[in-house]
Design a protein around this nucleic acid. Structure first.
Length: 407
DNA sequence: TCTGGGGTCCTAGGACCC
DNA sequence: TCTGGGGTCCTAGGACCC
């Protein structure tokens, strides 16, 4: 098998760039895209803001402190979704071997279609991809080209913004020689610390490390780590439209202020449960396991879960378990964040709804869902939620565009 | 009023059964 | 009645990603 040619296409400061494109007042200025609530963080910032010290994950106040002239813009999910759909269309026109990894990143394998592209060089193809995206969306991206996904991602991340870089097989040892291990995709803070404690700092050291030692410290993953240090990475693309079904659906929120009162906690739990269950119904899932996520005001975070006797997508049923979890949790401090997650998902099938009561509940849910959808969400809801704050759509990097062409 | 939200995968320990 | 183990399910937590 000949060498594969993988592209990683990564939009530059995606959300911030879309906002700057659409509002001339933001162009060439430090812009930070943030969430809708008071206790939010910087989701993305323009390169102007980054140069002035603004970083992703900073609180609003921290960003304002390091960069007083920062301009905050609230995230607009629909806009980014539309842009993503167009980008996916463009990439798909280059090759059907496409993996939409997140809202602003994709992998493209052109090995199989290369001769249909008149055997032009990978770099030239990368140039055309960048051109097409720039022309039709007025957005810039960085493109990394390499024999596998790991190296393609490295190639794009090291040449941002507006980058185009190819790592060839023969260049791999030189590129990895002094590269810090944490620059590799998948090696985070904790893994870096452990590797460093073993005297492993550069990828070339990881490549030579004792496999038994890695195996002992990292389990199964230790074997992958050594290969990654050598620039090897065998996993192929997850074809667009063929992604495995979701394993969990969850919603969580940092509350506007810390709370301790049980009835207030339960009110939020009902709202979060309803958001999760509505999405399950929309996407045709039933779930078996309910988890509630708690975060104290000191940031200690933990979860409690409970398996239900059968799978359901009914808000009330799921809520009854979530509420029981809250009541048994014996909370010790004020709560800053609450979340509800449903896992053990399976495809909903009509014939599973055997009981008349369940059928009624399902019809009711369907009616509520369609009305909610028609009126933009959150119009019809449980009476006890009427006084709570309505939240904007969340930003979900795992989101996949609808309606784009599939296999 | 320092620190968002939505995911996946892996591990480890305890319960329970044969 | 010195004490087996293997397998599976469930729960909790942590690492990592965008």
């Amino acid at each position: 098998m000949s060498e594969r040619i993988i592209f990683h296409v990564d939009m530059d400061a995606f959300f911030a760039s879309v906002e700057q494109r659409d509002n001339p007042n933001l162009q060439h200025k430090p812009v930070a895209v943030i969430g809708p609530n008071e206790r939010t963080v910087v989701v993305t910032s323009s390169y102007e803001a980054r140069r002035l010290g603004v970083e992703t994950g900073m609180s609003k106040y921290e960003a304002k402190r390091v960069c007083p002239q920062i301009i905050f813009v609230q995230a607009n999910h629909e806009k980014y979704t539309q842009a993503c759909e167009k980008i996916v269309e463009i990439l798909y026109s280059f090759s059907p071997d496409l993996e939409v990894y997140s809202i602003d990143e994709s992998f493209l394998d052109i090995s199989a279609v290369r001769h249909f592209l008149n055997d032009i060089s990978p770099l030239e193809i990368g140039k055309r991809i960048k051109q097409r995206i720039q022309e039709s969306l007025s957005l810039s991206c960085s493109v990394g080209i390499a024999p596998n996904k790991l190296l393609a991602k490295l190639a794009s991340s090291h040449h941002k913004p507006d980058g185009l870089f190819q790592i060839k097989e023969e260049d791999v040892p030189a590129i990895l020689k002094d590269l810090p291990v944490e620059e590799l995709w998948g090696i985070g803070k904790r893994t870096k610390e452990v590797l460093n404690s073993l005297g492993i700092y550069a990828c070339s050291q990881l490549a030579r490390a004792d496999p038994l030692l890695l195996r002992k410290r990292f389990g199964i993953w230790g074997e992958c780590l050594k290969e990654m240090g050598q620039g090897k990475y065998s996993s192929s693309l997850m074809p667009f439209g063929c992604e495995p079904k979701a394993r969990s659906i969850s919603h969580s929120m940092t509350l506007p202020y810390d709370i301790a009162a049980a009835e207030e906690i339960l009110k939020h739990i009902l709202e979060l449960t309803d958001m999760a269950a509505r999405r399950m119904r929309r996407e045709g899932f039933l779930g078996r396991t309910v988890a509630v996520i708690f975060r104290y005001n000191d940031f200690q975070t933990f979860s409690r879960q409970k398996k239900m006797p059968y799978a359901t997508d009914d808000t009330r049923k799921i809520y009854s378990y979530a509420a029981a979890i809250v009541k048994n949790a014996s909370l010790e401090k004020p709560i800053r964040l609450l979340g509800v997650s449903v896992s053990g998902l399976e495809r909903a099938q009509e014939e599973l709804f055997l009981f008349e009561q369940d059928k009624r509940a399902k019809r009711l849910n369907k009616t509520l869902d369609s009305l909610n959808e028609r009126f933009g969400g959150g119009i019809l809801t449980f009476a006890s939620l009427l006084s709570t704050v309505k939240h904007d759509k969340v930003i979900s990097p795992s989101w996949r565009p609808y309606g784009a062409r599939k296999y």
